[in-house]
Design a protein around this nucleic acid. Structure first.
Lengths: 259, 259
DNA sequence: TCGTTATTGATCAAAAGCAAGCATATTGAA
DNA sequence: TTCAATATGCTTGCTTTTGATCAATAACGA
């Protein structure tokens, strides 16, 4: 039998295996061989299949838990993706920041690219729920107001109900908002409900909303919706974003900027 | 095989290694060899790869954490003073942390020394208003709740009225609190009114208060008072603190620990 | 400055891990 | 029972990772 495509692996074993991976984050093949009493070949076949399903990630010598959400890579990797586009977009966004303003920066990687460009400004108030942005600006010029809450590891942002009192008390001139998915049908989407909750709050507390998204986000839909693209006053993206999408947004009154 | 470009280093080892670097800021290759049980050549290959990813910086003889903007020179100077005493005090304090607990860590340098010691704990909720503590624990095990507010540059802590709603909603088992000055007459004092405001709030939201102060703080008085030493249930200090002060506190029902 | 010592990078052979193929065991249906 | 389908275990050849050696290089003290 060559193709073992839809091989049905013993449910019992699958459960034990998954439990182990989730508990320890990583397991070694030889440990599984010992504990489950089957051969290494079988373990490998199991892992192979579970990897295909996206339930775990195989690494040399074993397997590790896949980060809970598929379409949001780990933060450190994410900043690498489309770094040039992100920087160009960030530069264009910074152009909107005027002295004396108060702005909100959310936790997206595109928006993180703005932070270094704002470090030297002194007559500026920056509100953020991103630990990364905070770290970037902690020694810089702007007055920094950090929104508290529970730290979401993956994005290094503060999220959840605890952010509400702080955000409700504030009002900013411009909110710079990133997104995981942008689609005309499904709107703006992100991976985490708590993250979405916080983003929704922000959108209501800003005079002007500037949406930042490189072309890789366009047409994508993630797990949970936090708004629609036409809520934005300005949309900044790169030149690879499909023209028809831009056209629709322009018709709806969004100022579109491509870099 | 020549090209070890995308060599997949044992994830298990990578994690330990990164933890070590983050905890100690600098690690020697031979220490890693000893602790991880692999050869120096392997450690070097790992380090090389992690450096390529930008996760750490290699130095002669080992590696160090890539410095983030959080490392304020102002602050760092202070952490150097009485570093040994601080670490001993921190170790004693960590002994009070039980699994399942929720604790508050404030922004003092003594308390910052506790953070690395808590990184590996998972069944723990840490509430903090210190950006430094947050940064230290951001990649670690404990659930992290960050109190928002305006960032005070010098101490890298969130202070002021915006911290009130978040702090009022929380209640912790233990609050670990540092101080700038400790005096029987003038009580616990600090330099910044907003800082004092936040500290006062914290003292009211904790089941148990553990006060940490090395001997250099004792007998000193700073600008503004935020409480009195007998409010603490436990006071941890070093052996150079004058005995008469400890005696008075003991008589007032404070459990005194000298390290 | 020079020489001494420690650290590094390159190379290579050994070990560990892996995929594919094949034989055997198990299961369920005719 | 017999047959077919599937899962498992074993062997083989190949790839990746590792540890040891050694020359080159960097730090350090006189």
């Amino acid at each position: 039998m060559k193709t073992t495509e839809n091989r049905e692996l013993a449910v019992e074993r699958e459960e034990k295996l998954l439990a182990r991976v989730k508990a320890g984050r990583i397991v070694r093949v030889d440990a599984l061989v010992r504990d489950l009493g089957v051969s290494a070949a079988t373990i490998r076949r199991d892992l192979e299949q579970l990897e295909k399903r996206g339930t775990l990630r195989r690494v040399h010598g074993g397997a590790m838990a896949v980060e809970s959400n598929l379409d949001e890579p780990l933060f450190d990797d994410k900043t690498q993706i489309a770094a040039t586009e992100k920087l160009c977009i960030a530069r264009a966004a910074v152009g909107f920041v005027k002295p004396g303003a108060s702005i909100f920066l959310d936790g997206g990687s595109t928006i993180l690219a703005m932070a270094p460009l704002l470090r030297e400004m002194t007559d500026l108030t920056v509100v953020t729920n991103s630990l990364r942005v905070a770290a970037e600006l902690a020694g810089g010029g702007p007055t920094l107001i950090i929104v508290g809450g529970e730290l979401r590891r993956r994005s290094q942002t503060m999220v959840g109900p605890l952010t509400e009192p702080a955000l409700s008390a504030l009002h900013v001139d411009i909110a710079f908002v990133g997104t995981i998915g942008l689609d005309l049908e499904t709107g703006l989407t992100t991976t985490d409900p708590r993250e979405a909750f916080t983003k929704r709050l922000i959108l209501r507390r800003a005079q002007q909303i500037i949406l930042l998204a490189d072309s890789s986000k366009c047409g994508k839909t993630s797990f949970i919706r936090f708004g629609s693209p036409e809520e934005a006053h300005v949309f900044i993206t790169d030149s690879s974003t499909p023209e028809h999408l831009l056209k629709v947004l322009r018709r709806k009154g969004v100022r579109v900027i491509t870099v």
